[in-house]
Computed example of a mutant assay.
Amino acid sequence: MSTPWCTGGGATDCGPRGENQDAYLSAGRVHIVADGMGGHVGGAAAAQAVIEAFRPLAGAPVATPADVKAAVERARSLVADVSHQAGGEAGATLSGAVAVEHDGEPWWMVINVGDSRVYALEGGALRQVTVDHSHVQELVDAGRITPAEAESHPDRNLVTRAIGDSWPGFDGWLVRARPGLRLVVASDGLMKVIADARIASIAALAGTADAAAQRLVAAALEAGTTDNVTVVVADTLHAQTPRDASPAPWTAWGEDALDDDDTTVSGRARVDA
C-alpha cells in the first residue's frame, strides 16, 4: 500500500529487554513510531494504541493536516482507555510523518510528542526535524548544557511529554515532499548508541526504505543498545515540484497555518487540541 508519491518500510527489535514496548506503522500515507513508556503500566499496549489511532489514515485517498491532528486526539483517547483498563498510568511517545495535501500540493506532516525523532536526509545531509521533549533538551534550550553533554547526561531518559499525559498538544511541521527526500523516524534505542553522522551514512547508502530501516536497527544492536529499537524510513518518490521551490526544507504548522503563507521557521510549532 502506498500513495502515488511516497513509500516506506520499518523494522523493530526488543534488544536485550524481555518485552518490546515499541510499535510502528509504515503503510500508505503513515510512517510513525511509538515508544511505550517503560515506567508506566501498559507501555506496550499504549504504543499499539497510538498505532491503531493512525491506521485509518494509511489507506485514506486524501489526508490533510487537520486529519493528522484528529488522529493525535484519537490516540490520546485510546491511550486513556489503556490506562483505565490497566489500572494505572500508560503512555507512549509518538513521532513520524504523514503524507498530506495542503494548498493543492504534497507535503509531509511531521509530528512529535516525546523523545523519539524524525530526521530529514537530502543530498547526503541529515537534519533533525523534531525537537525532543526531554529534560536534557530543556537544559540545552536554557543554555545550561551543550548538545554534546546532553548525549551522556544521567537524566537523558527523562521524557517531559507523552501521549497519555495531561498535555493535549503536539509539535508539528510541514516538510516539502521533494523527490529524493528520505525521512528517518526512530525510537531512542537508536540514538542512544548511533551518532547522527552514522545514521546519515547508513540511511544514505541503503537502497530501499525497508533496507535502510533494517540496517539501522542492526547497527544499534551491534553497538550494544540497551533498549528496544525501532526505525521507520519513508521516501518521497515523484511528488510534484512545489510552486515555491525555496531551499528551506520545513515549515512550522499550527492552528493558523492553513491561512498563512507557510513562512519557514527554525523552531517548533506546538498545536493545542
Rank of each mutant, 00 (worst) to 15 (best):
G10F: 05
G18C: 15
N20Y: 12
Q21L: 02
D22M: 10
Y24P: 15
S26T: 14
S26C: 14
A27I: 15
H31L: 10
I32N: 08
V33I: 12
M37D: 00
A45M: 11
A47D: 07
E52I: 01
A53S: 10
F54K: 15
L57F: 06
A58K: 04
V62G: 03
V62Q: 12
T64V: 06
K69P: 14
V72W: 11
E73P: 12
R76I: 06
S77F: 11
L78V: 12
D81E: 10
G87H: 07
G87V: 05
T93V: 08
V100E: 01
I111K: 04
G114W: 00
G114S: 04
A125E: 13
R127I: 10
D132Q: 03
H133D: 07
H135T: 14
Q137F: 06
L139R: 00
D141W: 13
G143Q: 06
A148C: 04
A148L: 14
A150I: 00
S152P: 06
P154G: 12
R156F: 02
N157Y: 03
N157I: 10
V159M: 02
V159Y: 02
V159G: 04
G164P: 07
G169Q: 03
V175G: 00
R176N: 10
L183R: 02
D188N: 02
G189A: 02
A197S: 14
A197W: 01
R198M: 07
A203V: 01
V217R: 13
A219P: 07
A219G: 06
A220R: 04
T225E: 03
T226M: 09
A234N: 06
L237D: 08
L237H: 11
P242W: 05
P242L: 11
R243M: 11
D244S: 15
E255F: 12
D256P: 06
D260L: 03
D261T: 11
T263S: 15
A273T: 14
